[in-house]
Design a protein around this nucleic acid. Structure first.
Lengths: 333, 333
DNA sequence: TTGTAGGCGTTATCAC
DNA sequence: GTGATAACGCCTACAA
């Protein structure tokens, strides 16, 4: 069943059918009605391969989500979709796995779907540095700053990771903690590096001792990673009273590791997370954590992208505010 | 950059380039080397629109995942991908949101990508009943039984929801509980209905009282749903000692609701979950839950689909074994 | 082994 | 307002 069949069955030519299906104004009401009748009768849908093969002009905003399980991304995607629809634009969403290259995907999408712009949820700065040059449409990298890259069609919207991490450690220190461990991503991650820098700044500012070899344990962002890293930290830093985990999911693993050593949270060890995922509020103890401001992130990302598209505005790199969710996993000494 | 450019730059014709890129054997090593050199230099990738538009013959297995956040699906997808690759087939993964129609997606994929078969992770039986007739390739519905539908190209692989739920309640009863509440999906969900039936069978078998109006609270499958439903259950069933939540994620919400009433798990109320997601083992208390056998589900799904494709085998509906993960959230009275 | 050409289903540019 | 027709980028006979 192709557009040709519809043309034959409706008594019109393919051109007219195409015009009807694409909402062109140059069609008589009669033609529109007859064609639509045939289309609906056969549940006909255009073939996107052919459509996009032919169509060079871009339409819609592509959203490339790297990491389907990232609990922070789901609400972001949902909100962005709404904002894009509100502007009468289509959104094309592509979920890719953590280990796929988001720029391969983006380049393919550009070749095949000609989007007007791209929102990247998550992504690796090294990938961007290596391959983003091939992309010509305006883009926004969301949750990671791309300021250091200097591409003139790549904006970014992110939490100020360094400031937020510094704030987190400030908080622990202000509550009387001084033997504080840090569980982070591997230092090849730009995000982890920024948060790590914030931690160090806080320790230094307050004159609190921090020996990276002992007090910092890198791990994968995941419960298992948090669990193992916390175990190591407890081994090498017996007197610790608080730990800052660079993601809520790691914090969950860390809390269990603490329990498995016969210690309690927060009585024996306080745990501060990072992200503010929904799950945190259902845990016992509820997670005390840094909250990334999802609404602002989604909002600003879409806003910036559209401004770059419609007004050819230059790329900008924004930081959105962060907050503190006071749960039950941190106590004052 | 198209195949024509590569042809020009490599000194060969488009046909040869196409043959190289598709791994055809009828190419000299020299041609292959020269063409690949140009291809890699320019990071050239074929345009899938054109490729699939032309290519009617199907290649690859499509995996349609409904619900990106379903913690059960992530490991299933990963394992299935591995199994499919091991058979030298390509896999095309499509993630769609919970509220999209998986059959619209499937029909589109069939028209545009011509897969040899489709694996559906999650899906609504009503959607299938209404629209699956349009699909002609072999398919497997995973985690939900499609036996009742009777399509001859739709197999299914699932946990025996009724038996597993019955087992769960059996277990609670055998540990001395008799005032047991149930938190489930809304009864329009086939899965929830099956699990609900299993619960009732267990209560009946053991002669334990069960008044659905009081002891059963339907809710959405999610932490918030579990939290609210548990609150309601505690209100209307003051003396309860145990609750069976029809998903682990609901159980997490339920446990927090119990805590918020000043009760403890499992000292005051025991909680049994369902699914066996990774998170359960990191919670405190660790979740006691029914484990769906992910490995078997992935394995059998791929196996059955390939048998249907390669040997034109008839559709089958298999149940995979389930188990019990003994955590800390259920205690003996 | 390699080159050539037709056509996949659609859109868009022409005429009419 | 409508109809014919040339691309879009690729695959695949078929020819050489």
């Amino acid at each position: 069943m192709t557009i040709k069949d519809i043309a034959r069955l409706s008594g019109y030519a393919v051109g007219t059918v195409s015009r009807v299906l694409n909402g062109s104004p140059n069609v008589s009401d009669e033609a529109r009605a007859k064609v639509m009748a045939v289309v609906e009768e056969h549940h006909f849908v255009l073939n996107n391969n052919a459509k996009h093969l032919k169509q060079q002009a871009g339409s819609g905003i592509a959203i490339i989500v790297k990491g389907t399980q990232n609990l922070l991304f789901a609400p972001l995607v949902e909100q962005m979709q709404g904002l894009i629809r509100k502007r009468d634009l289509a959104s094309l969403i592509y979920y890719i796995d953590e280990d796929e290259n988001e720029l391969d995907q983006a380049l393919q999408v550009c070749r095949e779907r000609h989007p007007q712009g791209i929102l990247f949820l998550g992504g690796d700065l090294d990938d961007f540095r290596a391959r983003f040059g091939g992309i010509k449409v305006p883009c926004v990298l969301v949750t990671t700053s791309a300021a250091s890259l200097g591409f003139d069609n790549l904006s970014s919207v992110s939490t100020d990771d360094a400031a937020a991490a510094e704030f987190a450690v400030d908080r622990l220190i202000s509550m009387g903690h001084s033997r504080i461990g840090v569980l982070g991503g591997r230092t090849d991650s730009h995000t982890a590096a920024a948060r790590y820098g914030g931690c160090r700044a806080s320790f230094k500012k307050h004159g609190v001792e921090f020996d990276p070899a002992v007090q910092y344990v890198p791990a994968r962002f995941g419960m298992a990673g948090g669990y193992r890293a916390m175990g190591a930290l407890l081994d090498q830093m017996p007197g610790l009273t608080a730990v800052f985990a660079m993601s809520d999911v790691m914090a969950v693993g860390a809390i269990r590791a603490i329990h498995d050593r016969g210690l309690r949270v927060p009585e024996d060890v306080s745990v501060m997370g990072f992200d503010g995922i929904e799950m945190g509020r259902y845990l016992t103890p509820q997670l005390t954590t840094i909250r990334q401001h999802r609404e602002s992130i989604a909002d600003r990302s879409v806003e910036i992208l559209l401004r770059c598209i419609e007004e050819k505005a230059p790329a900008v790199h924004e930081m959105t505010p962060f907050g503190l969710i006071t749960g039950e996993s941190v106590r004052a000494l």
